[in-house]
Design a binder for these strands. Structure first.
Lengths: 244, 244
DNA sequence: GGCACCAATTTGTGATCACATATCTAGAAT
DNA sequence: ATTCTAGATATGTGATCACAAATTGGTGCC
């Protein structure tokens, strides 16, 4: 009769409002390169695609606006942020500084359990690279780096780093699956893995730096060059928002 | 009769919605240390204090949640984020990395016009320090650093740095006006100023690093020590939200 | 006196509506 | 055929309401 008390201690699954779900969904989508730079979206359109009312979408978008993923134009129109070449270099430099810090710290805190997990994520990354699966590669790449940085036990810094990932996510829709780039990238990842296994902080920092620099070089080749590839950002007419 | 066209070109003041105003107001308040760590707030209370409906406040809070200034607990209760000692050290390290980068870059891009502006902001900072005016000092301090970093022309990185400032803002309500600390801080600021005037990047980075490290030391003395000072965060009863 | 229990209030969340403005679509004039 | 214009539609913003969960305040029981 009075077993109404033993219930409260249940995990409570950390509170997951609809706005939170929409937020994570959109954020993951941005980081996985499912939105093109400059792409126009609408609150109502996203709400319909996600099967919710506009309200949770509004709140999720405000968060993503703060993170720099989306922007509201002067005329209050919603669009995916489009980074310039200079801004892309800023992100690169900031990433080198912050992720280098995290990589170095992670190397000194690695344990045997971490070795196994990191290696497993590395294998998944390799598989995505072999399959030339860009979205899959992006997800696996971020998962690989995130797991490493989590070992550094600096959630605040990791949060800032993830914000930068959100910024560069859309840029990757402009780059086609390039075997050469993927191979070079995997080379850097291999060096990151080795450095971590040897608990070599400076080497881990150097490898992460190379990885970031190389990704930036790859992106700089397609940014600030309004040649083609714009077909992705502006599909002529009917720019109905994506369902992703 | 057809003078409806010549109007559009008006400045349009860059679109300033009520949600934007509330956002800036709260953000400035947090950075100026007008909110205590852990302080409980309510959407309706803030809306009433700011003379708006709950709607703009909700959207502003979502942005500030993304920046880490406020948080919604498991039970969806709103409060000012309270950084632990470890998190404070993370912010310190990230600031050293990012602000050092910006300071070094600023030193190489300084012009005579910048010299005058920075000097002027330095004088304002000195005045606030002499008056032992903590809120005024905080505002002047951030304005001084922001102006310097703007010269580095890396808005993306500056945005990330300002996010860190938002995080440490509330901590400063716990620290009383300390003449010793303020004097030491002004010493670092003096060195920053000198380095910039001599266009000495490495020296500017070193001075900024010292400034950040010293501020962190100051804060670490009052964080993670639940002695008193909690009277500010929890005014016994009636924790009606502030009007600031 | 302390503690458990229940009613009243508070509060975040989601939904819906009204409105102003921007954008789009058609139609007409040249 | 092109361009300009006016009607129609689309869209972000702000306000209000309903609701469920949580907090609070008081009451009585041990």
């Amino acid at each position: 009769m009075k077993d109404t008390k033993p219930l409260p201690p249940l995990p409570s699954v950390a509170r997951d409002s609809m706005a939170d779900q929409v937020y994570r969904h959109l954020r993951d989508g941005v980081m996985a390169g499912r939105f093109a730079p400059g792409q126009r979206l609408t609150i109502r359109g996203l709400a319909e695609a996600l099967g919710s009312s506009p309200m949770p979408v509004r709140e999720a978008l405000r968060r993503l606006q703060a993170e720099g993923a989306f922007e509201f134009s002067d005329t209050a129109r919603l669009s995916v942020v489009q980074l310039s070449g200079a801004q892309l270099r800023d992100v690169r430099d900031a990433r080198v500084a912050l992720e280098g810090l995290l990589a170095e710290r992670a190397a000194s805190r690695m344990t045997g359990v971490d070795d196994a997990e990191i290696t497993q994520l590395y294998d998944r990354l390799q598989a995505a690279a072999d399959a030339l699966d860009v979205p899959g590669y992006l997800s696996a790449n971020f998962a690989f780096h995130r797991r490493i940085y989590e070992i550094a036990q600096a959630p605040i810094i990791l949060g800032a780093v993830e914000n930068f990932w959100v910024l560069i996510g859309p840029c990757f829709v402009l780059v086609a699956p390039d075997a050469t780039h993927l191979r070079r990238s995997m080379d850097a990842h291999r060096r990151i893995l080795d450095a971590l296994m040897h608990r070599d902080g400076p080497a881990a920092r150097a490898a992460v730096t190379d990885d970031i620099m190389q990704a930036a070089n790859c992106l700089s080749r397609v940014i600030d060059k309004p040649e083609k590839a714009r077909s992705v950002a502006a599909p002529k007419r009917r720019r109905r928002d994506v369902s992703a």
